[in-house]
Nucleic acid binder design. Structure first.
Lengths: 188, 188
DNA sequence: GGAAGCATGTAAGATGTTACATGATTAC
DNA sequence: GTAATCATGTAACATCTTACATGCTTCC
C-alpha cells in the first residue's frame, strides 16, 4: 500500500469524514510533506473500503447532497498503527531538480548559477519565515506538539538550504583558482 | 518533459554514452538526488531521439555486442541549456513519510516515537559522515566544484535532520505539561 | 559448467496528475 | 444570473518501477 493510503487512514483516525472533506483536509498541514490530489483521495478510499480498512455510513442531508462518511474499522486502526510503528522510511529517495541543475552548472554562465542559488535562497527564506511562525504559534498548544514537530523539521531544513546558499555565495564570490593542479589540462 | 529527460541530456553532455553505460551512470552521484531505473533511461533515450535532441552512432565491437552510442545534437544542447537556466523548481514538493508518521504520533506509545526519531537520527548521521567525506575529498579538485556543491547540500540537510532529532529528544525528555490551558478539555 | 559483464529492450503494473462531468443549493 | 460550495466520481495520461527476455563473451 502506498503511503497515501496510510495518510488517508491517519486523517480518518482523527475524525470520520466524507471524500469531499478529506479532499480538503489533504490540502492542510499534511500537504507540506505529503501532497495528494482529490482524485487520489477518492481512489484510496475505494481501495481502503475494498480491503475493509474503512467503512462508510450514508448520511442524508436536506439542503445539501447526501454524502458517505468514512470511518476506520478495527482492521483499519490496526493497519495504521502497525505502519506507524515501523521505523522504515529509508528507501524514500528525495528528488531535487535544483541539484540536477547544480550538477551540470559548468555549462552555465556565472550569472545564471547565481540566479539559481538566489532563487533557491529566496524560496527557502520565505519557507523559513512561514514555518518559524507556525512553530512559534503552536508552542503553547501541547495537543499540537506533533504537528509542530513536522513544521520544525521543515524549518530546520529551510535553514539548511539557507546555510547552503551562503556557502554557495562564498564559493561564487571567490571563483576557483585555475592554477590548482589537475591531471590533464586539456581544455583552455 | 520530465526532469529525467534532462538528467540524461546532462549526462550525455559530459560524454557520449550507450544506454548501457547511461544505466550505470545514473547509479552514480546523480542517484543521490535524482534516482532513475535502467528502463527509465532507455525510455528517455527513445523520447529524446524522436525529438531530435540526441543522435546515435552504431559502434561495432568484435568481442562484445555492438552498441549505439548517443550524443547531443545542437538542439539537445540548446534544450539542456535552456532548462538549466530556468530557476524554476518550486513545484517540487518533497514527500516525506517520516513526517506523516510524526503527524499521527499521538497514536503511538512514547517508546515507538523515540524509535522513529532515533532511526531518523541514525540514518542522518551515516549520511552526514558519508557526505562530509565527499565534500572534504572534492575540496581540492576545482573541476569537481559543482558535484561537491550537491554533496554539500545533502550534508547541510543531514545536519538539519540531526538538529531536528536533537530537538525531538529534548521534547521527548520533558513530556508536555498537561496543565497548559486548552479551550476544551474534553479528553482525559 | 556457471557466474558475471556487456548490451538492448519489452510488458505489466503502481502511483499519481489534470481535466472533465454532473447536479443541487446558497450567497452576492 | 452567476459564482462558489457541497458532493462524487471517471477518463486519459504521465511517470516510473519491477520483472522478464535474449544472447554473446570472458573469467573462474
Amino acid at each position: 500500500m502506498p503511503v497515501s493510503a496510510f495518510a488517508v487512514l491517519g486523517l480518518l483516525s482523527q475524525a470520520p469524514a466524507s471524500g469531499y472533506q478529506l479532499a480538503q483536509l489533504v490540502d492542510g498541514p499534511i500537504s507540506n510533506f505529503w501532497p495528494m490530489s482529490k482524485s487520489n483521495v477518492y481512489g484510496e478510499l475505494v481501495r481502503l473500503e475494498e480491503l475493509g480498512l474503512v467503512e462508510a455510513s450514508d448520511v442524508s442531508q436536506v439542503k445539501l447532497p447526501n454524502k458517505r462518511v468514512f470511518h476506520l474499522t478495527a482492521a483499519g486502526e490496526a493497519a495504521l498503527d502497525a505502519w506507524l510503528r515501523e521505523p522504515t522510511f529509508r528507501k524514500e529517495r528525495r528528488k531535487n531538480s535544483l541539484l540536477v541543475k547544480m550538477l551540470f552548472a559548468d555549462r552555465l554562465a556565472p550569472e545564471h548559477i547565481v540566479a539559481l542559488v538566489e532563487a533557491a535562497r529566496d524560496e527557502a527564506e520565505s519557507e523559513r519565515a512561514r514555518l518559524a511562525a507556525i512553530v512559534d504559534a503552536l508552542a503553547e498548544f501541547p495537543a499540537a506538539q506533533w504537528g509542530r514537530s513536522t513544521a520544525l523539521f521543515g524549518l530546520r531544513h529551510a535553514e539548511a538550504t539557507l546555510a547552503w546558499a551562503d556557502d554557495m555565495r562564498h564559493q561564487l564570490d571567490q571563483p576557483v583558482s585555475n592554477a590548482t593542479p589537475r591531471r590533464h589540462d586539456t581544455s583552455a
